[in-house]
């Protein structure tokens, strides 16, 4: 599904990612953990294609295509979804209009007919249930005046509608209370399937109680320095990241 090879990314000539290698197979859930400022969000932005994130070396293969050759929108149309840590507010654009435009652009790219209003509303109602969002949502402007939890639920709602092959969720669990966390986790689990892959970027283990990962990676100093089974997340929760830092500095990792 996804194969990242020796990825180097710089922002304004400062190298943030220094050779990331990562392979995520269809059906797998990977968690990427690590302390602040080690490049986790940069990795998500590089996969999305955000301007200002300059890839100086390496490749990002997705279903046989190099994402680096594609525009931001074509990456999404190929089936890549990025769940943002801080989704922007867009006054004046209703969620319904936004999502219908997006879904139909994706469908057009894939050679499918656009959904008409009724078909779209039916689909939207179905997906709203996944994240327990109310009907009022559809007429509201995108993220405008939403609480932190509502914004994250809206991200997962968009993911459910667009039904991507790969979802990269950047700290989707931050700022959520326990109920919102459960709802968001349910939404993510709803996407899981044999032909779907998920990358969860998180600081904390608690989301991983709900979304059990196949592999846990530790990103440190712009590189993946350690990978292991789900138990690694528990160990990190217990011991923190200092020991990783020490071992990395001693050249053990």
């Amino acid at each position: 599904m996804l194969k990242i090879e020796d990825l180097h990314v710089s922002i304004k000539d400062r190298e943030i990612l220094k050779g990331v290698n990562l392979e995520v197979k269809a059906g797998e859930v990977h968690a990427i953990m690590g302390p602040n400022g080690t490049g986790k969000s940069t990795l998500a932005s590089a996969i999305a294609g955000k301007s200002g994130y300059e890839v100086t070396q390496g490749n990002i293969w997705f279903k046989g295509k190099n994402l680096l050759d594609l525009s931001i929108e074509d990456r999404a149309r190929e089936g890549v979804f990025i769940g943002f840590q801080y989704p922007v507010e867009i006054p004046g654009v209703s969620i319904a209009n936004f999502m219908r435009t997006a879904l139909n652009e994706v469908r057009k790219y894939r050679g499918l007919d656009p959904l008409n209003g009724a078909q779209f509303l039916k689909l939207m109602a179905e997906k709203q249930k996944v994240v327990e969002l109310t009907d009022k949502l559809s007429t509201r402007s995108v993220n405008e005046g939403f609480s932190g939890g509502e914004k994250k639920r809206n991200e997962i709602f968009q993911m459910a509608l667009l039904d991507p092959y790969l979802a990269v969720l950047d700290e989707t669990d931050s700022g959520l209370d326990i109920d919102a966390l459960r709802i968001v986790a349910n939404g993510i689990n709803h996407l899981r399937g044999a032909d779907k892959s998920i990358i969860v970027i998180t600081h904390y283990q608690r989301l991983l109680d709900y979304i059990v990962p196949d592999v846990v990676h530790v990103l440190f100093d712009g590189k993946i320095v350690m990978s292991g089974p789900k138990e690694l997340a528990l160990e990190l929760e217990k011991r923190g990241y200092d020991w990783i830092k020490e071992e990395y500095e001693q050249g053990k990792l």
């Binding site: 929108e73 979804f81 867009i90 006054p91 435009t101 652009e105 790219y109 667009l162």
Partner: peptide
């Protein structure tokens, strides 16, 4: 930032521009 957000959902640059202008 809003343009980037719309594009990450599959909306082309020109359509994203129009959506924001209409808003």
């Amino acid at each position: 930032e809003a343009l980037y957000y719309l594009r990450t959902r599959g909306i082309g640059e020109a359509a994203a521009n129009r959506l924001l202008m209409f808003a």
